[in-house]
Amino acid sequence: MKALEIRQLTKVYAGGHQALNGIDLDVSEGEFFALLGPNGAGKTTTIGIITSLVNKTAGQVSVFGYDIDTQLEAAKSQIGLVPQEFNFNVFEKVMHILITQAGYYGIPAKLANERAEKYLKKLGLWDKRNVQARELSGGMKRRLMIARALVHEPKLLILDEPTAGVDIELRRSMWDFLREINAQGITIILTTHYLEEAEALCRKIAIINQGNIITHEGMDSLLRKLHVETFILYLKNELWELPDLGEFNGYLENKCTLAVDVQRDQSMNDLFAVLAQHNIEVQSMRNKANRLEEMFIKMIAKGEEVDNV
């Protein structure tokens, strides 16, 4: 079963700006899916159309088989949305925000109260239930929006940059929470600028840029397509200038840190052989973090398929 199926989705805003150029996207039930893209790529626009906040110009969207043109209400019932920006009434109490949202989904008061309690507890906001939302910290507000999105127990949870402005500790605990509810069978789609976030959480990924999907596949196969990996070598002795590394491309980050690009068809043994020739001793080494980030930047610069990186 497809949790989400998007075909030829196009959006032209009133001012004439074309935000989406006929994108296709498929998300299967149970997936943890990342939609990546730089600022202004069209992520929020896509999510807006799925959740009826934005009118589409052309194309089809269906959610668990319900087309948003013909079975809008059924489609809406499947989705829980955590928007990019805070959009609750800051003067309402936390508990009221959840109960009200449940009510909009047609959940009667008694059940709404139980659900609100359940999700406020899960997100660590139960102590704050009688506090006006404006008195919450930024991280608490994010968690409030997650609780609100879950109160009708949707099958598809969509989060638009949920960890923006959230500290590392809270981010980790949000990740754990999202993994947990994904394991329970909720399909999750998230957008993020933190590329390590997508790498840590998601098995499927789509990259969007300037209103076009430039890649749409599994995280593993995407990473495998990386032609180059960069290794950071910590040297035992200071190096004053970059030695000739032969076939390898390297640069000195500082006197004790050498970065080397290793192509997929090159071998690490060759690299160490070259280093040995120059009497360079390597104390330790790490893979440069955010391979995805590297690739991402390259792809976006080229605006092409990942195979051509």
Binding site: K76, P83, Q101
Partner: peptide, 18 residues
């Protein structure tokens, strides 16, 4: 209007309420 301004109108729009 303040629901529009604070955007909490979106809570209604995303929900299946006619």
């Amino acid at each position: 209007f303040s629901s529009k301004f604070q955007r909490n109108i979106e809570e209604m729009i995303v929900a299946p309420i006619p």
